[in-house]
């Protein structure tokens, strides 16, 4: 039964990822006092790209061909494992936080590798920066998840969600501060401005995505939108699990589904507003902001240790 939920969850997330990126783009347009494109534009783009002929670089190797399926596939797998509609993990073996973090490292590895495979310089720079985002955000994310694991008594995401939903996670303020730090870390991981290191349109011309075309590009764009949705869902799953289904009864599942869609929509709205209100920051000063998030995460660690 839970396997079916996992598969349906994955399909659902793949289906709504372009819609959410379309909504994000519409909000940006409105904030810039433009009309903007339709919120379904990403679907039209994907369909169009899928039918195009693909051009691959003469000197590139099989890594460039493998990167898009691996990128998309890893995030589909992650989407299947998170406790979004239910409070428990549909697939427990995919629900351990260490598994989630390291499974997110695989698409990053292949993405950057394919970027280095290309001969264009902007592509390669984007790939290297994508790796650095991982380095900068890992400490805060692992510290937050460590605090949650000790507070909830398990490293499984489902058990963490359950403990927050029952308000049984022990040092309460530590969990709240950890939630704040996790929100910031997930914002950075989602690649919203000013942390869009990999595809900084203003600086490096879409970066590694410039190397792809046709169906591969469609797969990568879908993958990038899906990554943003999965990271936002991770935050929602652990820290805002209220409303998710406690049992597998169909009515509860439907309510859980509706509540989840609402939560993720709110998260994307807030992220879009923040994204369009901040300015571009010079690349080498981004470290200050990421270390600030580490500081807040360590504050939550101190609260955990003290027992507040």
């Amino acid at each position: 039964m839970t396997i079916i939920i996992a598969i349906l969850q994955a399909i659902l997330l793949v289906a709504i990822a372009p819609l959410l990126s379309g909504i994000t783009r519409k909000i940006r347009a409105k904030m810039h006092a433009r009309t903007g494109t339709s919120i379904f534009q990403d679907y039209y783009d994907l369909a169009k790209l899928w039918k195009r002929c693909e051009v691959k670089e003469g000197g590139s190797s099989i890594v460039s061909r493998l990167a898009p399926p691996i990128f998309l596939g890893s995030f589909i797998l992650l989407a299947a494992g998170l406790p979004l509609v239910m409070q428990a993990c549909p697939v427990p073996i995919l629900g351990d936080i260490i598994t989630v973090l390291y499974l997110m490292a695989l698409p990053r590895f292949m993405f950057a590798l394919a970027a280095i495979d290309s001969a264009g310089s902007y592509t390669a720079i984007g790939g290297v920066r994508e790796l650095l985002v991982g380095v900068l955000v890992e400490p805060s994310l692992i510290l937050v998840l460590f605090v949650m694991a000790v507070a909830a008594g398990s490293t499984n995401v489902g058990v963490m969600a359950l403990s927050v939903a029952n308000l049984s996670a022990y040092p309460f303020v530590a969990v709240v501060v950890a939630g704040v730090a996790c929100a910031m870390a997930c914002y950075i991981e989602m690649g919203k401005l000013p942390f869009d290191l990999a595809e900084a349109e203003q600086e490096i011309q879409e970066g590694p995505l410039a190397a792809y075309s046709g169906p591969s590009l469609a797969m990568m764009k879908l993958g990038v939108s899906l990554k943003q949705l999965v990271v936002a869902s991770l935050f929602v799953a652990i820290f805002v699990p209220f409303g998710a289904a406690a049992t597998a009864a169909p009515l509860e599942l439907l309510i859980g589904l509706a509540v989840y869609l609402g939560k993720v929509l709110v998260v994307f709205l807030i992220a879009s507003v923040i994204e369009n209100a901040v300015m571009r920051v010079r690349y080498k000063f981004l470290g200050r902001y990421t270390w600030f998030v580490v500081g807040i995460a360590s504050l939550s660690l101190v609260f955990l240790v003290i027992g507040i």
């Binding site: 200050r288 270390w291 600030f292 580490v294 500081g295 360590s298 504050l299 660690l301 101190v302």
Partner: peptide
């Protein structure tokens, strides 16, 4: 910078505890 200030505050709270 902000990060070091936050870290310093965290350390002070821990030491006082």
């Amino acid at each position: 910078n902000p990060m070091k200030s936050v870290a310093l505050v965290a350390v002070e709270v821990f030491v006082c505890f």
